[in-house]
Design a protein around this nucleic acid. Sequence first.
RNA 1: UGACCCAUGGUGUAAUGGUAGCACUCCGGUUUUUGGUAUCGUCAGUCAAGGUUCGAGUCCUUGUGGGUCAACCA
Length: 559
Amino acid sequence: MNEEKKSLNFIEQIIEDDLANGLTQDKLRFRFPPEPNGYLHIGHAASICLNFGLGLRYNAPVNLRFDDTNPAKEEQEYVDSIKHDVQWLGFTWDKELYSSDYFQQLYDWAVEIIKNGKAYVDDQSSEEMALQKGTPTEPGTDSKNRNRSIEENLALFLKMKNGDFEEGSHVLRAKIDMKHVNMHMRDPIMYRILKRHHHRTGNDWCIYPMYDWTHGESDYLEQISHSICTLEFKSHRDLYDWYVDQVYDPAKLRPKQREFARRNLSYTVMSKRKLLQLVEEGIVTGWDDPRMPTISGLRRRGYTPESIRTFSETAGISKRDNVTDVALLEYCIKDDLNKTAPRVMAVLDPVKVVITNYPEGKEEWLTAENNQEDESAGFREVPFSREIYIEKEDFREEANKKFFRLKLGNEVRLKNAYIIKAESVVKDENGEITEIHCTYDTESLSGSGTEASQRKVKGTLHWVSIKHAVKAEVRVYDRLFTEEAPDSQKDKDFKDFLNPDSLTVLEAFVEPSLKEANVLDRFQFQRLGYFCVDKDTTEFHLVFNRTVPLRDSWAKMEE
RNA sequence: UGACCCAUGGUGUAAUGGUAGCACUCCGGUUUUUGGUAUCGUCAGUCAAGGUUCGAGUCCUUGUGGGUCAACCA
């Protein structure tokens, strides 16, 4: 009953203020506007969760709008992946829209703007125009084409549209103010000539509208009430407003742009350019490499949509630059999987144990709970026999009292099975232990209710029966970079900080029940971590990805 | 030598002029057939200096520090 009221973030605050000042709730409408030029990453997830979260909170529609105004970079493949990722995250958009849907409307409006004397065709080189643009501290100078007649502009713009000019030879510019303190207001380009095939409009157009000209008008057309973007667009706001002013009908809703800080994660990079570089240079295996901060990478790694939503919610939003500790993301997935992932046993670095007083040829199928955190998860049967594998690091010939695991002369419990005692070891010519000989307490079976079964021993180990074990490839991932903020180190390239050990491939043994596992099924390998079945799995070859290890306070004690 | 944005524990955020709180991380205790989980606890913060006010993290001024802005990218 603690009616603790959740505080509003600053965007919600703005909306509440607008509502208090007369905007009605039914006018609220949002959008998520990715450019289909790459895969979505965890930073986009923040924006997705923000926009769709607002939609849920205010019962308002949220459009998925592809900002596809640059045919040179955009592809259908990216459109498909983005739709998949948004759905996978658990959100439903109202309308699927494309900026390219508005090319004709934008063109018609541009003609009107020319007729109003607010735009002109410039045929200078981009170098000349850049020179005239000035700098943040110096005003720009007017183009020699700035005062072309309306008729001439109309004729030239038509020729641009008709493909009569070469790429790069002409642009349409808004006539605003070359001396404006805001560089974006110094006669920005509205259209450029691009003789490229567009993934949706094909070859219908050879002029394409720029982002600024497109975005506000698209928001206006869709009657988006709050157009939320990241901080680097702050200085575009003046232009956004100027463009909306050119077509605004006061009877309609006027969209407003508001900006928040993009979410950065420690030990990774987030820019599409850099992620693309990792993919193209083969540093990772693809956009969905489990080490990538992409939604598809996290999905393949074993992250749940729920955990990513919780992460976004917990990290919150603000207007300051940030680098969120990846430990928070890892906490979110561990917390989720702890409640939902079935427990199984797998040995990643095996050493053989022979239980000398266990009859040769005998096998038992023992009962094991699937999830101690969830009674409804039920039980399964796990085979036990005379020879088993345990982890190498779970045995020492000698150790101090802090070491709760198996050592000569000492007892441990095998999870869901018996208590065993290490009696001797067999070594090869190099002194490497090849077998550990143990005896077991025949009365100590877990759950049997006997006095011996209730005995307290300090350590409990996971294990697999050698005879029944299934071989599996296990891919153990570590952070991709060794530096918290790899892309903000002065004079250094982010790739200087690549972690050479970000992937370790192990040949492991897992309990037989895992033979039935399907791609993306998630498990806790007890005492080790959370793992999921990779898509590389075939009928004959099981592959697991380690999502995240369990907290290991023993490893910490060991320094 | 400009304009704009930002500044709260190690990290991410809250406090809307009135008790600086939450989560993660770190460290420690208890419980435990996972050295997991759960649970209890410890350490730790308002960039600085002035001003307004009964009262300032919050408002004002000036500094300091960080970021953004000059693609025919978005």
